[in-house]
């Protein structure tokens, strides 16, 4: 496999395997595998090695192997993480590494979770709606200072690890009332977009259920892109919701000035 072929140490893995065919609803159990681990390997490499050598039908999702596509999300030793960005040398040498699919979503098979719900949520969010071009040549202008904060949100690779960890979804199953951290920061990115004209604040309160979030910051802690979801997106959005619905003075001012931030 590699240039360093001096006998590589074997490591133990407990990998979730579903039983029966795909209609069995993801029931299963951990199975123990052992495979050699070479220098610089990440957990995804080990899963692939096991798949090639011992379990051809082991299902795992991946694409880029570089933390860019957000396909390989799973739970490693109980923590939501990307398989391709978790290095084996981050574990102690005799640790058994358990790998299972994201648990907040239904399991399709083995390590593959059914994340379709996330795509459905996004479709419900009002899309970007551009203001008229401001410049004489018919193009838009945006200042770098104004785009920097939404560029943070646009780094999102849609791995849905933040959705997986959020207790409102995971423990309380509020799939019908709560969009989840990924989509709060997505909405924040649209709301703070200097060229966007739409208003999503009422939706955030009513349809998206931002009120359920009690700012535990678990989402921020698992985000592989280090997006400060809670501080930079959710809290400002909660403030906007509060301003709009609970502060009559702000409401009046807004009525007079008509969304002053939209045309920055």
């Amino acid at each position: 496999m590699s240039e360093t072929n001096q006998s590589q140490p074997k490591r133990r893995f407990d990998i979730w395997r579903t039983k029966g065919d795909a209609s069995s609803g993801g029931e299963g159990a951990f199975e123990r595998y052992e495979t050699e681990v070479g220098e610089g390997m990440v957990v995804l490499d080990c899963v692939h090695r096991i798949q090639a050598e011992q379990a051809n039908d082991l299902a795992v999702r991946w694409n880029c192997k570089a933390g860019k596509c957000g396909s390989c999300s799973a739970e490693i030793n109980g923590m939501p993480r990307l398989l391709c960005m978790t290095r084996m040398d981050s574990f102690s040498p005799d640790e058994i590494i358990s790998i299972e699919p994201m648990r907040t979503f239904p399991t399709v098979r083995d390590l593959v979770a059914d994340v379709r719900w996330n795509y459905q949520v996004k479709e419900k969010i009002r899309p970007f709606e551009p203001i008229a071009p401001q410049a004489a040549d018919g193009t838009h202008r945006m200042m770098h200072e104004d785009v920097e904060r939404i560029q943070e949100f646009r780094k999102c690779i849609e791995c849905f690890l933040c959705q997986d960890v959020c207790h409102v979804l995971r423990d309380h199953q509020k799939f019908d009332e709560f969009d989840g951290p990924r989509f709060f920061q997505f909405t924040a990115g649209l709301e703070m977009h200097p060229l966007d004209a739409a208003d999503r604040i009422p939706d955030l309160k009513h349809r998206a259920g931002i009120g359920y979030c009690n700012i535990t910051k678990c989402c921020t802690n698992v985000c592989p892109e280090n997006i400060r979801i809670t501080d930079n997106a959710i809290i400002p959005m909660k403030e906007r919701v509060a301003d709009r619905f609970y502060d009559p003075l702000m409401r009046l001012l807004r009525f007079v000035f008509q969304r002053p931030s939209a045309n920055r």
Partner: peptide, 12 residues
Amino acid sequence: AWGAVFDRTRDG
């Protein structure tokens, strides 16, 4: 115009 946010020049 569909919402992409490119890096900017000084004049926006």
